[in-house]
Computed example of a mutant assay.
Amino acid sequence: MPGSPQPVLGSDLATLAAAVGVAAVAVAVVAVLGSRESRPPVVAAVVGVAYSLLALGVYFAARTGAQTFLDMSPPETAVAFAALGVVVVLLQAAVPAYGFIEQGSPAWLLGMFASTTFLFALLLRVGGESDVLVLYPFFGSMALVATVVPVAVEQMLGALGVVEESS
């Protein structure tokens, strides 16, 4: 379909597999750090910055390799929205890292896995009529909210006595 982003790895399946792989590694890193560290704000900040740098690296590598940078007008607006997108990406990792370290609930890792898979599946697609990083503040914020859904469900079920709440 004209105007639709195309998978940089050649197929949707390869793109999804790569996104799932990145998500698995990101969640494993948070799980390991969370079991060893007792300073949630510091770890969450480091995880968030490293995660956003990885996302930016994948974003630029995919577009450089495919030679598909969009001409956004006016560029100042595009840069402002892209910067906001980076903040959303940073929070997408920092919030569940902090929550997992502070509460120990694996539901935080489930939410992070889902939102990371979503993010990297988008970053590994190029072309189209708009830029994923510029639009990410809008639909990425929904992924950020979705990150906390497993935690909310776990806490509701715990309050109802259906499952034992993590602590």
Rank of each mutant, 00 (worst) to 15 (best):
P137T: 10
A93V: 03
L53E: 08
Y98P: 01
G140D: 02
A83T: 07
Q67A: 15
V87P: 03
L70G: 07
M112N: 04
F120Q: 03
F100E: 00
L91Y: 08
V163K: 10
L91C: 10
L135H: 10
L133P: 02
V32E: 07
V153Q: 02
S167A: 15
A83M: 05
L133D: 02
F118M: 07
P7H: 07
P137N: 11
I101L: 04
V89S: 05
L144N: 09
E154D: 12
M142R: 13
V86Q: 06
M156V: 14
E165F: 07
G21F: 12
G104V: 11
V95Q: 10
V22L: 13
D71Y: 06
P2G: 06
F60C: 00
W108Q: 01
A50M: 12
A14G: 00
G104T: 12
P41K: 13
G85E: 02
G21V: 06
W108T: 00
L70R: 09
V30H: 01
G57S: 07
L110Y: 08
M72H: 09
Q103N: 14
L91H: 09
Q92T: 12
V95W: 13
V79T: 15
T147F: 06
Y51L: 01
A80I: 00
L91N: 07
L124P: 02
A97L: 02
V30W: 00
